[in-house]
């Protein structure tokens, strides 16, 4: 069962895409929603400050962190990337801190700075990227052989793979292109 963090943000879009790929999903709004047989976790786009606060106050942070560190595959988009990052530029409070990168929030400015682009995400060629008040990855904080940079747009890292984590600053769930979700679904199948 793939869990989609549904505290706030664009969780329905991820749900729709995973259903189109034939996956079973559950929306996680509170601690008791977290399934025992969690085979994958999606951390969705939205406001990271809102989601971080709700994760703490609904007492879900530690249990999800434990699951992530135990190897459950994670797909993180935009705010999800911020929740995972080990460091946030400007010293802001981190959340899970499982992903060895330093991210810069609202890195392209306000909504007028939101943009779209097309690029390769690792082996996925010509993928449509939607950047909405997006962050980017300032730098990675691990050995190059441990963390794989999947995309660089305008000189900025926007997507990485690290162990069981696939994280990006843009929104594949806002497109019709299922290739990134496919990659993630493959990761969830390979752990068994």
């Amino acid at each position: 069962m793939i869990g989609i963090l549904a505290l706030q943000g664009a969780f329905e879009e991820h749900e729709k895409m995973l259903h189109a790929l034939g996956c079973q999903t559950v929306l996680i709004r509170k601690k008791s929603d977290i399934p025992q047989d969690l085979t994958g976790l999606v951390l969705v786009g939205g406001e990271s400050t809102t989601q971080r606060k709700l994760l703490r106050e609904l007492d879900m942070l530690d249990i999800l962190k434990e699951r992530i560190e135990s190897g459950v595959p994670v797909l993180a988009t935009c705010a999800g990337l911020i929740l995972l990052a080990k460091e946030i530029s400007g010293g802001e409070q981190t959340c899970f801190g499982c992903l060895p990168v330093r991210v810069c929030r609202n890195a392209y400015g306000r909504q007028l700075g939101s943009f779209s682009a097309v690029g390769d995400i690792g082996g996925v060629k010509n993928f449509p990227m939607r950047f909405i008040r997006a962050p980017y990855i300032e730098c990675t904080l691990a050995n190059d052989k441990d963390i794989e940079v999947l995309n660089i747009t305008d000189g900025r890292i926007t997507a990485v793979r690290y162990k069981n984590i696939l994280a990006m600053s843009f929104h594949p769930e806002l497109t019709e292109d299922t290739r990134i979700h496919n990659l993630f679904v493959d990761m969830t199948k390979n752990i068994h």
């Binding site: 706030q8 943000g9 664009a10 786009g45 939205g46 406001e47 939607r130 008040r133 806002l174």
Partner: peptide, 18 residues
């Protein structure tokens, strides 16, 4: 059109919020 799409998408990111 792309700008309008990006603007609709920002609203999608606000969903489930106050």
């Amino acid at each position: 059109n792309d700008r309008y799409q990006l603007n609709k998408e920002l609203a999608q990111m606000l969903k489930g919020g106050v």
